[in-house]
């Protein structure tokens, strides 16, 4: 590159290409700030992170040594790590179906209204934009074992009250409820976009063909046409759910008895509380691997969606 640049002193026209040219160097100037940031805050850190996953480095330590796959081996035998992975999977398995189905049902119903669509869209979208941490504290109160209105409701209909955040078997479902609450409106909007893309003629054609029961219409026209959107929503929600951290950090801190340890929270503890950088990096590599895998599936789905 430098040779090319130096062979064209300023003020002389380039030999090779004829005709005035919009200096291609301007493109590099335009891209340079982003490239610096991309390398500095993304690519280089990732490389460093992967490299560190093969060391026993601890923050503050004076030196460190390469330990090969030791970190990965100890992860393999680590109960906390596996528990966090399973808890995360459990959370994803609870949140994804619920939030996708609720989002779909809401979108289809709101779309079928003649009036008031706007109101419902605002109402259902409000949780998405709200500060989750603040709302999580509200939820903690709502689900409180003694003074929470949910327990008031349960006792009112004759059920026993539940200590959602104190019972190891209830804590993940409780977190999942908050997750579903904060994601359903988002999925609803994605489905609404998919619904508006369905040509009206298809409904007219199905009416001519004698399908006039709305439920039958939903299963013969709407749902098949929403197929690609649904796939996409499922994967997007999975990625979001997989990254669960905020509610755990604020409400449960992995408790009770590690029943709500999730991958990112364990990673956070290892890296930033216990400062075991090497081990935390290994967890991050696992996390990155899973995220990239999901993204790959997402890209494939998107590709299909385009050709649909």
């Amino acid at each position: 590159m430098t040779m090319v640049l130096s062979s064209h002193p300023i003020g002389r026209t380039p030999r090779r290409r004829l005709g005035a040219e919009i200096a291609p160097s301007i493109a590099y100037w335009f891209a340079t700030p982003s490239i610096i940031l991309l390398v500095g805050t993304m690519l280089l850190p990732i490389v460093v992170m992967i490299a560190m996953s093969f060391t026993d480095y601890e923050l503050g330590a004076l030196d460190f040594s390469f330990v090969g796959f030791d970190n990965y081996v100890s992860l393999w035998g680590d109960k906390t790590f596996w528990r966090s992975l399973l808890n995360t999977a459990y959370y994803v398995a609870l949140v994804v179906p619920a939030s996708v189905i609720i989002g779909l049902v809401l979108a289809v119903m709101v779309n079928g209204l003649k009036r008031g669509r706007r109101f419902y869209q605002i109402a259902f979208f409000l949780p998405v934009t709200s500060t989750l941490i603040a709302m999580a504290t509200v939820w903690k109160y709502l689900l409180h074992g003694k003074i929470g209105p949910v327990n008031h409701l349960l006792t009112a209909i004759g059920l026993p009250g539940m200590e959602f955040f104190g019972d190891p078997s209830l804590v993940m479902p409780a977190l999942a409820i908050i997750g579903v609450w904060s994601l359903a409106g988002f999925n609803m909007v994605l489905f609404t976009a998919g619904l508006t893309a369905i040509p009206q003629e298809l409904y007219e054609a199905s009416a001519v063909d004698g399908i006039d029961n709305p439920i039958e219409r939903f299963f013969t026209v709407t749902l098949p046409m929403l197929g690609p959107t649904t796939m996409f929503v499922i994967i997007t929600t999975s990625i979001t759910a997989f990254k669960v951290f905020d509610t755990v950090a604020v409400l449960t801190r992995g408790g009770p008895q590690g029943a709500s340890d999730v991958l990112l929270y364990v990673n956070y503890l290892e890296g930033f509380q216990y400062m075991r950088i090497g081990l935390a990096s290994a967890i991050t590599v696992v996390f990155l691997g899973i995220i990239l895998l999901l993204s790959l599936v997402q890209a494939k789905v998107l590709e299909r969606k385009v050709h649909y």
Binding site: L18, G19, A20, I22
Partner: peptide, 29 residues
């Protein structure tokens, strides 16, 4: 567009009023 200087040609010359303008940017033509 080649006359205007918006895309470069691979060969040949454009002259306006007898003077070649190949090296000129569109705005200078």
């Amino acid at each position: 567009r080649i006359i205007a200087g918006l895309i470069p040609q691979d060969g040949g010359t454009i002259s306006i009023d007898g003077a070649p303008v190949d090296h000129l940017l569109p705005k200078a033509r």
